[in-house]
């Protein structure tokens, strides 16, 4: 197992390098530049700015220096858009925010989703099942860009319970709505996957055997059915976790959390090269880590899988 993990980590490095080179090329090919505005900058002024950020050098050299700074100093360079900040600072400020509401969303989505899916499966075709299926379909049909304004209309404008935005250093009233808005559609997916896989497992032969042995419903469920039923959910949870902790643009923009999601989109729109690259690398590394985690969990859940 350890060998497997080390091997995967070794592959991760070239993968990230390919990601950097590919993003760098895409970025340079895209029209525009970070200092473009409705008013065109005088040529001399633009030249000074390019010299300040090393953009006057040949592109292959910019790429090499960029990679070298990351490898040697873990320095992702200065942001071109937020001129008095570095990319390291932007990530250090935004990522903890996203991580906080992302982790809460993950917990809420998986706990509620798995319980709801399980309940629906063991009480199949009862009002409980219909209720759970109804909620999940509803939650899936309402995307978060619709959910977010509805939440603010109810909880901020209507009831005055929660602030309609801001982060306030992670005070809980500021966290509630981002978590609900982010977790609902994931929760719905998890519940749906859990329900169908649990139904399949409950109808399989080894469960019939367990029941025939006279085991109680609870023992059958927790001792025999739950683990195999979780398998498809786990393969979904990996990418879902990465998706949630890397933030949602919609949530960041609507609730002004200052998270990494809005920084990512803004930097792409403003051609803030260094910030796009920095966040892309972060997301890439997290995705690789997330996939690795899923594979390790697989081996734990399913005894048939051995590395």
């Amino acid at each position: 197992m350890l060998k497997f993990i080390l091997k995967r980590l070794a592959v991760a490095i070239p993968t990230l390098l390919v990601l950097i080179v590919f993003s760098f090329i895409l970025m340079k090919v895209a029209p525009g530049n970070p200092f473009n505005g409705e008013k065109k900058l005088p040529k001399l002024v633009l030249e000074n700015i390019y010299a300040r950020y090393g953009l006057d050098k040949p592109e292959w050299r910019q790429l090499l220096e960029y990679v070298w700074n990351i490898v040697a100093h873990f320095d992702f360079g200065p942001s071109f858009q937020y001129r008095d900040r570095t990319v390291n600072e932007i990530i250090a400020q935004g990522f903890p925010v996203t991580l906080t509401y992302g982790c809460w969303s993950f917990v809420v989505a998986s706990v509620v989703g798995i319980s709801m899916g399980t309940l629906a499966a063991i009480r199949q075709n009862t009002w409980l099942d219909y209720f759970a299926v109804g909620i999940t379909i509803g939650a899936q049909a309402v995307p978060n860009f619709v959910m977010a304004p509805i939440l603010t209309l109810i909880f901020s404008l209507g009831l005055h319970w929660l602030p309609g935005g801001g982060w306030n250093n992670g005070a809980w009233p500021n966290v509630v709505m981002p978590v609900i808005a982010l977790s609902t559609s994931y929760m719905a997916n998890i519940a749906r996957i859990m329900r169908s896989s649990m139904l399949e497992v409950l109808n399989s032969n080894f469960i019939r055997t367990a029941r025939a042995k006279g085991l109680s419903g609870g023992r059958v469920l927790f001792g025999h059915a739950l683990k195999p039923a979780l398998l498809p959910v786990i393969s979904y949870l990996g990418p879902a976790l990465v998706g949630m902790i890397t933030g949602s643009v919609v949530v960041d923009v609507f609730f002004s959390t200052g998270g990494i999601g809005s920084a990512f989109v803004n930097s792409a729109l403003n051609r803030d090269y260094s910030t796009i690259l920095g966040i892309t690398i972060l997301l890439g590394a997290l995705t690789i880590a997330g996939n690795l985690l899923v594979d390790v969990l697989y081996a734990w859940v399913d005894p048939k899988i051995r590395y």
Partner: peptide, 18 residues
């Protein structure tokens, strides 16, 4: 100076007195 990128959200928060 509160960052609110979405104009409609800005209006909702104005109505909520924020």
């Amino acid at each position: 100076f509160l960052t609110i990128n979405d104009e409609n959200q800005g209006l909702t928060r104005f109505m909520a007195g924020e």
